[in-house]
């Protein structure tokens, strides 16, 4: 046990008075890759947005190591669903990663040695050294996700919220990204990733959180992603990997 938990207690979040998720209670240790799984409209993105404080809680509370979220601003980093709209912005890979330090620095303070070190470390960790001077607009989808993940790492956060990080990536890039995230195990970094690929979720994730507007299961991936649990969440039996691949 690495100590520390992210705890949801009776969490309900409403959009225009309709509950998107309701009465979610579970606790996650602050380590490892967690798949957030469920059918469309199950409240997966809502859960992430509630964690970020974008949406108010209608009931319940979320605490990090016992402290309310409002006191933990710098500990979360967010990777939104792939969005092509920003891709035209004139900026290099290195500068995107450096943006991870902006919130700490505010408007006036320049980059100190610690900030530069954090940026360099993130670039090295995500193997972006050969790309660092390339314009972000010229990168492939996988390279973009890696750059944005490096920026998240550079913030110094220890909880990473990734909303469908695999969307639009080819198979090798998906594999690369999941392998990196799964490889963080033991580094006291919690990654919550909304995934649609249940086979990949079973293969790479330590734990899973299964939602269908209420919490269906939360725990070790092998048990939380068992066929019976998924059948409950998705409302029908799903073919297992073996059946799907014949």
């Amino acid at each position: 046990m690495t100590g520390g938990t992210l705890a949801f207690a009776d969490v309900t979040v409403c959009y225009r008075r309709l509950p998107a998720i309701h009465h979610v209670t579970c606790a996650l240790p602050l380590d490892g890759l967690v798949a957030v799984v469920g059918p469309n409209g199950a409240g997966k993105s809502t859960l992430l947005k509630a964690l970020l404080g974008f949406l108010p809680l209608t009931t319940g509370s979320i605490t990090l190591d016992g402290a309310p979220l409002a006191a933990c601003a710098g500990r979360f980093a967010y990777l939104a669903q792939a969005d092509a709209s920003a891709a035209g912005f004139p900026i290099t890979v290195e500068e995107v990663v450096a943006q991870g330090r902006y919130q700490r620095l505010g408007a006036f303070r320049g980059f100190a040695a610690a900030d530069r070190a954090a940026v360099e470390q993130a670039i090295a960790e995500l193997s972006l050294e050969p790309l660092r001077r390339r314009p972000f607009a010229q990168l492939s989808g996988g390279q973009r996700q890696r750059t944005l993940l490096a920026r998240a790492v550079a913030t110094g956060a220890d909880i990473f919220l990734l909303d469908e990080p695999l969307t639009g990536l080819d198979a090798p890039s998906q594999h690369d990204l999941l392998a990196r995230l799964a490889g963080w195990r033991g580094q006291r970094r919690l990654v919550l990733a909304v995934l649609h690929d249940l086979v990949a979720a079973r293969r790479w994730c330590a734990r899973a959180l299964v939602l269908d507007r209420h919490l269906v299961a939360c725990g070790e991936a092998a048990t939380a992603l068992a066929p019976a649990v998924l059948a409950e969440a998705f409302g029908r039996a799903l073919p297992t990997a073996e059946e799907a691949h014949g």
Partner: peptide, 22 residues
């Protein structure tokens, strides 16, 4: 001069900007 970092983030990636508490 004062706000170029924030302007860059607002134009480049609003979701990240908000999530970081910007």
């Amino acid at each position: 001069a004062v706000g170029w970092r924030w302007l860059a983030l607002e134009c480049f990636d609003r979701g990240f900007f908000r999530a970081a508490g910007g």
